[in-house]
Amino acid sequence: MAILLKDLVNKNVPLNGGHRMCPGCPTPVIVKQILMSTDHPKVAANATGCLEVATTIYPYTAWNIPWIHNAFENAAATIAGIESAFRALIKRGEIAEDRKQTKFIAFGGDGGTYDIGLQSLSGALERGHNFLYVCYDNEGYMNTGIQRSSATPIGANTTTTPVGKVSYGKKEPRKDLISIVAAHHIPYIASAAPHNWMDTMNKAKKAIEVNGPAFMDVISPCVPGWKIRTDEWKGISEAAVKTCFWPLIEIENGEWRLTGESKKIADGKMEKLPVEEFLKSQGRFKHLFKLENKDVIKLIQDDVDKSWNYYKRMAGYND
């Protein structure tokens, strides 16, 4: 059944206002898109990070569903414990009738997912727990003050890869987490971008309903970290996809495909924009537009093209 905005607006939003995320932060929107994609009862676990910190400052919580924060690196293990408890309590008849279809979702930033929580995630995926792990990927340790992570792209100015007289920012390309997760051969994996809410919600619905582990990596432009205006993230999310910096991917039972704008680009029905279109409005890349750094933009473009070609090949397109 298609997801319709006119239906959604009449439903309770799982994350209330009054949270203290930055103005113009897309992460609460991502949470809304993920959690409202199905009507199942849900329990969420959250890794330490912006979302956790800013939505549950004691004695206030923005969460309308059962929710737990344990630590930074263990959201996957925590949700695994909850999901296991669910199976045990179902067996023993201790779960109320209206909760028997409960679904389990973990949220972590890229720090908690690509880096410190990768082992915990890998373990939970391998063990086959029935849960969805969502990485809201703002490409850095934003909560602690904009440090680099392994999700930070080449050339980004962060507080641990600052631009200086001899440095243009981060030197290394992003880690290909989608492929790492894909190597676990779990039933459902996707990347998503919140400007394309329909694509994100359709993916979330599949991810939540599939039997077994599912993973989604959702780009989350960061107002202070990317140095953008508070009303800008939707356009930047869109540019990320249209430049193929952030391809929309879906891997269902090992079958790779491209979706949304990425599919149109691969099919030749939409123009692939140069990466500058993604970089230009972000303060973290401002220095790259100086003459002395023009090679870095080429470096980024080469990295984007290499990844894009790889994902296209995986999705069955010939170069």
């Binding site: 905005l5 959604l8 103005p23």
Partner: peptide
């Protein structure tokens, strides 16, 4: 069209009987 509802990070678009009526 409720685009504002979808993209509001603060759940601050007020909808009453399928009509956008203002802001929280």
């Amino acid at each position: 069209c409720f685009q504002c509802w979808m993209f509001c990070p603060d759940n601050s678009i007020s909808i009453v009987e399928n009509k956008m009526v203002g802001f929280d």
